[in-house]
Nucleic acid binder design. Structure first.
Lengths: 172, 172, 172, 172
DNA sequence: TATGAATGAGTATTCATTCAT
DNA sequence: GATGAATGAATACTCATTCAT
């Protein structure tokens, strides 16, 4: 693996597990087995390193939700939304944990990131004849995000049973 | 206001807004207009200051959920649970934002804090004849927590309309 | 025991065992079970506390060596000098350890403290016909001081046998 | 001179003259004309700096006493022992003063450091027919150490005359 | 006499960052 | 591209000391 990537991976892991502020550049350098100076040559400063990691987040979110956006069958939209959190692989958990954690860091939180999914869901609930489509959409997103968090934090929730439960509830 | 309290309030505000790690004791001292040393006289160390703040969290959580625990009518249990987040006052938002934020700080997260509410909710859903009471309870808690977060972060969600939506949905 | 004395004893013990610089006034206050402020009311500052302890040292040295100064029989002078270190009681070891330790603290070292004993010894060696009385006196003082240190530091030297050895060597 | 060495020399001088506890890392940095941070880059912490200095002490002690250990003529062993303290150069006085001072710092005192010399001396006194060889050896070491201290502290003792006195006394 | 709250200067150590090589 | 020496500002925390009560 090229040195720049080694830094990126080490930083991701540390940021996700210990937090951005609690992770020193020296710790990152040690974990990546490179000199501390190299971090700054590649990413200008610590913030730049974080941003490099997060740029990818946009891509991954897009990638996961693209099939949902393209879907026309409303039932299928709900089903895909519910299934979304179950698709992320174990090796990506660090990444997602970091993304969720950063929601609480005002400097890095982009609250409208999921709006395009919200709109698609609202539209789908409308098509399915739900009375209050907007709030239904909000509620589903909240639940899906909560499961995502449960999954990447390995909190002990029986996620499989919960998925089936949601499928039945929304009849999808 | 006595100096010890001034420290407590200043720290709460800063921890909630900037994060525990990102808040230096010198910043706290300046905000509280006391000498930095006094923080350590009163709270031993930075962690001790945080813990002093969090000790109260247990009390407040208990206080908010006590009426729910005591309630026997299952419909009323759901209603009170949904209403809970709407009861916190603006001046407490800092406090709650800190509590939620710390869920992401492994050192301070107590994941079972809400179990007693979960049990009460499960029981209530059972009484009301819901098929999958456990998952229903989990889902409601997830949603209620999500609204709480929306409220204390002032995220622009129309919380009042959402409350009515939940009342109707659960017919309470 | 009166509070002032409690401070004196606690400070002596701590200074002797951990060193003057390494002993904080707060540690002393805790050990003496008094408020930290009281130390300063009684002794003005930390240095004053040390000086109060050391004032006594002059007295004790005087007390120990007075019989030697008064002695006229030169053999007896040597004998008493050799015996001197063996007279200090266990409860005084802290005190003497502190005195010896402070020889290495330039601020508190008084190198001429023992000159009056040196003169008496020189005179005695002269009377006994030793060729180089001054150096004999110096040597004996060095040895006696070394045993004193061994005793108060409990270094494992067989001090009793060494005393007999000196008695024989100097034929006293 | 390389920066690491500048730190080492400045620290040695300050530790020797003011004591380990009384010497702050900031004082050392100023004396060495380097940034305070560099001390920790090179020596991890203050204790590490002291230990780096002391590691050399072992070497120097070994170096000074090696000829004595190798010597077979018992008279020559005594002579070399007596001469040992006179060999250290003025520029090393700081170093030796620190070594002696640390004997009083429980954390750094190694009381058996000189045992190998003690054994050699005992053996020599035995060969020379002294009755109580062990105590003779102890006594000579005590005296030699006392002169060493006198020398490095420049206490005004006429060390040259004292050396001659010892040569005569032990007939070497 | 005695306390305990309070302080400001100081402590060892860590940090993100720079720079010559 | 990559290192490692170096820095200065910041960090959590301790210290001797003051002072109102």
């Amino acid at each position: 693996m090229i040195r720049k990537e080694k830094i990126l991976f080490a930083a991701l892991k540390l940021f996700a597990n210990e937090g951005y502020d609690a992770t020193s550049t020296s710790k990152i350098a040690k974990a990546a087995q490179v000199s501390e100076g190299l971090i700054f040559r590649h990413f200008t400063n610590k913030k730049g390193l974080l941003e490099a990691i997060l740029t990818e987040s946009e891509k991954r979110v897009q990638q996961i939700f693209q099939p949902i956006i393209n879907e026309t069958d409303p039932k299928q939209v709900l089903r895909l939304t519910i299934e979304a959190p179950y698709q992320s692989k174990k090796k990506d958990f660090d990444f997602w944990r970091l993304v969720f954690k950063l929601k609480w860091d005002t400097n890095y939180n982009n609250p409208n990131k999921m709006n395009f999914v919200l709109e698609k869901l609202t539209e789908s609930f409308q098509k399915l004849g739900y009375k209050n489509a907007t709030n239904e959409a909000i509620m589903l997103i909240q639940v899906v995000e909560a499961i995502s968090i449960s999954i990447v934090r390995a909190e002990g929730l029986d996620v499989e049973s919960f998925k089936q439960f949601l499928f039945e509830k929304y009849q999808v």
